[in-house]
C-alpha cells in the first residue's frame, strides 16, 4: 500500500525534506508535514502561536531545505504597501523610472505578525497571494514560482492589531499552531546546536524541478466520487450548523481537497482516502469557521463537527 504510486516521482526527496525539517523543528512531525503539504498544494500558510516556538525557524528551514529564496518581513502598523511590493525610483543617469522590487518578490515570504499592519498593507499582501502577481504603475509583474507565504500572528496580544477579516483568512489554505515542544524534544533542542548556525549550513535536498514535479503530482492524486461526497457532506454540515457564522465556502472545499491530495501524496498514496481529509480538516477549516458564541476560531467545535459527520 505504501509503494510509490506509478504516476508519481519517487518519494525519496520528499522524505529527505521532511527529515531535514524535523531535524530543525524537534517533536513537530505533524506540523512540518502539514506545512509541506500546504506548500505542495500551492496554498499559503498561517501560523498562529505565541513568540518563540519556532515559527520563523520553520519558515526559514522550509526555504533552505527546498532551496528557495527567502525574505522575512516584519509587519508593523506604519508599514505601507510599497514597503512590501517595491517602489519605482527615478534613475537620473538613464532618465527612466527603475523598479526596486520589494521583499514580496521572493519564493518564500515570511510575513511576521501580519495582524500588526494596517488593512491597506494586509490587502496588498493578500492580493498578491491570490493573483500570484503584482501590478504597480500599470505594469503587471509576475511573482516567482513557487510563491509561498507563511504569515504568523500572535493570538495572545490583540491590542493595537488589525485582525484579518474573514474574506482574507479564506486565502490561507491552512492555519496551524506549533505549540510548545514536549519535554524530550525541548531537552534535545536545549542541548543541541544553535538553530541559526544550523540554518546557515543547511543545504537544499530537493531541486526546483523535483519540487515542481511534486506540485503537479499532487493534482494527479485520484479523488473518487465517494470522497467528493464526503467533502461535500462536511461542507454542508458546516453550513447547516448554527454554531458558526458562515459555513465553508466553495473555495474552502476546493482547498480541503487540495490539502487532502497533498497529504495523501506525502503518505505515498495515489488516491485520497477519508483519513487524509480528516487529517487536514482541522487546519483547513478552523480559521474559516468563526464561532457564533466567541466570534473566534474554535478548534474543538470543528473537531466535534468532524466527529458528527458520517463518512458516506
Amino acid at each position: 500500500m505504501n509503494a510509490p504510486p506509478p504516476n508519481s516521482p519517487s518519494l525519496a526527496p520528499v522524505h529527505a525534506v521532511l527529515d531535514q525539517l524535523d531535524a530543525f523543528i524537534l517533536g513537530k512531525k505533524r506540523e512540518t508535514r502539514l506545512a509541506l503539504a500546504c506548500l505542495l498544494g500551492r496554498g499559503h500558510l498561517l501560523i498562529e502561536d505565541v513568540p518563540g516556538v519556532g515559527k520563523t525557524t520553520l519558515a526559514h528551514a522550509l526555504a533552505a531545505t527546498l532551496g528557495l529564496a527567502f525574505q522575512r518581513v516584519q509587519f508593523t502598523s506604519d508599514m505601507l504597501p510599497a514597503d512590501l511590493i517595491g517602489v519605482s525610483i527615478y534613475d537620473r543617469d538613464n532618465h527612466v523610472f527603475r523598479f526596486h522590487a520589494g521583499p514580496i518578490f521572493s519564493q518564500v515570504v515570511l510575513a511576521d505578525e501580519i495582524n500588526r499592519a494596517t488593512p491597506k498593507t494586509q490587502s496588498a499582501l493578500l492580493e498578491a497571494m491570490e493573483e500570484r502577481q503584482v501590478t504597480l504603475d500599470g505594469e503587471t509583474r509576475i511573482l516567482p514560482d513557487p510563491f509561498f507565504v507563511i504569515a504568523t500572528q500572535n493570538p495572545a496580544s490583540q491590542i493595537g492589531t488589525f485582525p484579518l477579516p474573514e474574506s482574507q483568512l479564506d486565502r490561507f489554505l491552512m492555519r496551524i499552531t506549533l505549540g510548545y515542544p514536549d519535554a524530550a524534544a525541548e531537552r534535545a533542542m536545549l542541548l543541541g546546536e544553535d538553530r541559526r548556525d544550523m540554518l546557515k549550513d543547511a543545504r537544499a535536498v530537493i531541486t526546483h524541478a523535483e519540487l515542481a514535479e511534486f506540485q503537479s503530482a499532487v493534482r494527479r492524486v485520484h479523488v473518487a466520487p465517494a470522497l467528493v461526497d464526503y467533502v461535500q457532506a462536511l461542507a454542508r454540515a458546516t453550513r447547516d450548523s448554527t454554531e458558526f457564522h458562515n459555513g465553508l465556502s466553495p473555495r474552502a472545499a476546493l482547498g480541503l481537497l487540495a490539502a487532502a491530495r497533498a497529504w495523501a501524496l506525502l503518505a505515498g498514496r495515489e488516491m485520497v482516502i477519508p483519513e487524509d481529509v480528516q487529517a487536514v480538516f482541522g487546519p483547513v477549516a478552523t480559521h474559516r469557521l468563526l464561532a457564533r458564541a466567541s466570534n473566534r476560531p474554535q478548534p474543538e467545535l470543528v473537531i466535534r463537527l468532524l466527529g458528527e459527520v458520517a463518512i458516506p
Binding site: 477519508p274 483519513e275 466527529g307 458528527e308 459527520v309 458520517a310 463518512i311
Partner: peptide
C-alpha cells in the same frame, strides 16, 4: 465502527 471513524482507524 464509529460514525465518523475512518476505515484505517
Amino acid at each position: 465502527v464509529g460514525l465518523a471513524e475512518a476505515p484505517s482507524d
